[in-house]
Design a protein around this nucleic acid. Sequence first.
DNA 1: CGTGCCGTTGAACTTGCTCAAATCAGGTGG
DNA 2: CCACCTGATTTGAGCAAGTTCAACGGCACG
Lengths: 264, 264
Amino acid sequence: MYKTQPYGGRTDPALPWLNGAAVGLHQPAPGSSNGGAGRIAQSLSLLAQHLPLRRRLVHAGDAIFEAGTPFHQLYVINSGSVKVVNTAADGRNQVVGLLFKGDWLGFDGIAKGHYGCTAQALEIGEIWGFRYDTLMAAAAAQPQLLLELHTEMSRAIVRGRDALLSLCTLPVAARVAEFLRQWAESLATRGLRNDQITLRMSRAEIGNYLGMTLESVSRALSSLERAGVICFTEKGRRLIQIPDPQALSDFIQAEAQATGATLQ
Amino acid sequence: MYKTQPYGGRTDPALPWLNGAAVGLHQPAPGSSNGGAGRIAQSLSLLAQHLPLRRRLVHAGDAIFEAGTPFHQLYVINSGSVKVVNTAADGRNQVVGLLFKGDWLGFDGIAKGHYGCTAQALEIGEIWGFRYDTLMAAAAAQPQLLLELHTEMSRAIVRGRDALLSLCTLPVAARVAEFLRQWAESLATRGLRNDQITLRMSRAEIGNYLGMTLESVSRALSSLERAGVICFTEKGRRLIQIPDPQALSDFIQAEAQATGATLQ
DNA sequence: CGTGCCGTTGAACTTGCTCAAATCAGGTGG
DNA sequence: CCACCTGATTTGAGCAAGTTCAACGGCACG
């Protein structure tokens, strides 16, 4: 397996912190049973209350914003899912993010003054748009808005880093498994059923996202099915069932250790 | 070459925007010849003026903060360089960032309430620390501080995405070249000489950062030297000279195209 | 009913990894 | 100042994961 080997750095005392949990500065909404779903609903309603929103219905394939256009607005997903595609100067491009209800879009525009990525809906959904300067003005009266913004930006940074880590330390099959695990986790956080996933991307898109070929994605899914970690439903090979989320995690763990990617 | 192949997405009209340029919302400092260096000096002095800073001298290897400790402070590099190491729950860890003067540290703590990474100095330098809540309080009086924060967070997001793109679309040799190019660019932005680079990381650390083995890093550097794109100085193989930055870019371009990673 | 796209699977090939040995730089103690 | 030791780096040879190329089946759409 093509994994980076241990390097005798000084930062290696294997640390026991959970990386996946989505606990934030926010206390769970009083009276909400699920921290994740409550948090997201709460923050969406906060926005709705204090900002003039441009609500837009999108269909699969619709662009929410395009790389290169001037930045003025941020967006929040009220429903549906979105992929973010990064494009380099020489035309190489890559899916760099996959976002769901409550996630924000367009942060990369703040620094550069124009969007650096293209965001595209993967299914029917509703996207809320609002101007960055309006948000800042509203935040003067409602500081909670600022905390929300910072938390979401921080989350985006963490997501990017975790993606990098997966990409560098996991073999293909485990990367696909991790992809499914994260997707299921995102659904669970939002209070949706997470025992099945409707892939809204082609094998080619998934492969592009995970840094592998479409054939590798296909093979990885087949091998996950053979291992009994996932099942395909009778109809269509884009609807994936996950009988036991723990089995997915175990699979990833096993693959990671097999490669010696554990480090230190 | 193991590169992701084209996928017939709908987002592919190859876009001509430069990805590397560091132009921001900030207008170049009036009277400063170099936008980058001016911007950084300006934003450092803005912080010094409006915030009580904890200044700390660090030596190579010193930790600025450790993954898992509670988040209260953000940090800014006043001088020196820093690496950021991400650690997963199962012990896999990876260098996910390399930062220089003017860069901020610790954003990942905002969402989770504790730092998710460890930051470690690569050389002697001075790090400024200040509490996040103090920053927010000061921002009420000085909104420029907020813009600064957002710009830096945005920049961190963009950097992460670009790293992902390199990792997925470039073969090893080009990845090393791109690494050097970015380092040189960072130096240039800060008004420092960018015709030579003192690597402050071992081959193993570089490999970990770039998702390859230390042997691959070594071979890539040797091949860059053979191609005349870089030179080693007589003393030590950690001081690298870059006679012609353009040649580096050309090398990357050529390698990228050779793999068909161009897409579209 | 043909055309096109998506997905799967097989076989051969290539890149980058693993293992191993030799070299080199830096620091330590005599 | 030199011998020595340790860790970093380079380089080679063989191997394997994942890619490339290619063929086939299924489903949707005109």
